[in-house]
């Protein structure tokens, strides 16, 4: 338990500056979940293969299980907890519910983070573009179809409200 195995890491998480004491072996995923108490980001594999732990880090989607906590020093992180605007759900969140795009829900936070990043880059993705972008997120329950529909429906709503 000596200090040389731990360090203080300070990052902006969903707009709030948060400092945690992180073990040198701690991943960003564990830092978010266990040190910062933000358990919305999920662990599926710890090898970067399932996308359940997807978060935004400095504007890019990353598998937080593959980022060391120490690497998050000074970074801007956005997690599923930061997607809604206060009590107003993001259109993606509403469309996931309307389309029944989740069953067990464990992959949902990762899909929402990835999908939000997609729509920020491409406000009108085709079915193929949506599937390509989300291919790094595994879902074992839904068969993906309702997820793709929800993302494209949210995109349409966001485009029409932006006009």
């Amino acid at each position: 338990m000596s200090m040389d195995t731990k360090r203080i890491v300070t990052a902006s998480i969903n707009g709030a500056e948060i400092s945690v004491m992180a073990d040198n072996r701690m991943s960003l995923l564990e830092m978010l979940r266990d040190a910062a108490g933000l358990t919305g980001t999920k662990e599926g594999c710890m090898t970067g293969d399932c996308g359940a732990c997807s978060v935004m880090m400095n504007g890019r989607v990353v598998d937080s299980c593959l980022v060391m906590a120490a690497e998050a020093e000074g970074a801007e992180i956005e997690t599923v907890e930061g997607i809604a605007d206060g009590k107003n759900l993001h259109p993606l969140q509403r469309k996931f519910l309307e389309h029944a795009a989740l069953q067990c829900g464990i992959c949902t936070p990762g899909f929402l983070v990835s999908a939000k990043a997609l729509l920020e880059k491409n406000p009108d993705p085709s079915d193929a573009e949506t599937r390509y972008w989300l291919a790094g997120n595994l879902c074992r329950c839904t068969g993906y179809q309702q997820i793709i529909d929800a993302v494209r429906d949210a995109a349409a709503e966001m485009r029409s409200s932006a006009k």
Binding site: G40, T41, K42, L89, E98, A100, T108
Partner: peptide, 23 residues
């Protein structure tokens, strides 16, 4: 009919608590 599931909002906001979220 197709009502919105009652546990839905918790699951799209990251609030739903799974086994790993127990502390």
């Amino acid at each position: 009919t197709r009502p919105i599931r009652h546990d839905g909002e918790d699951k799209v906001t990251g609030r739903a608590r799974y086994g790993a979220d127990v502390h």
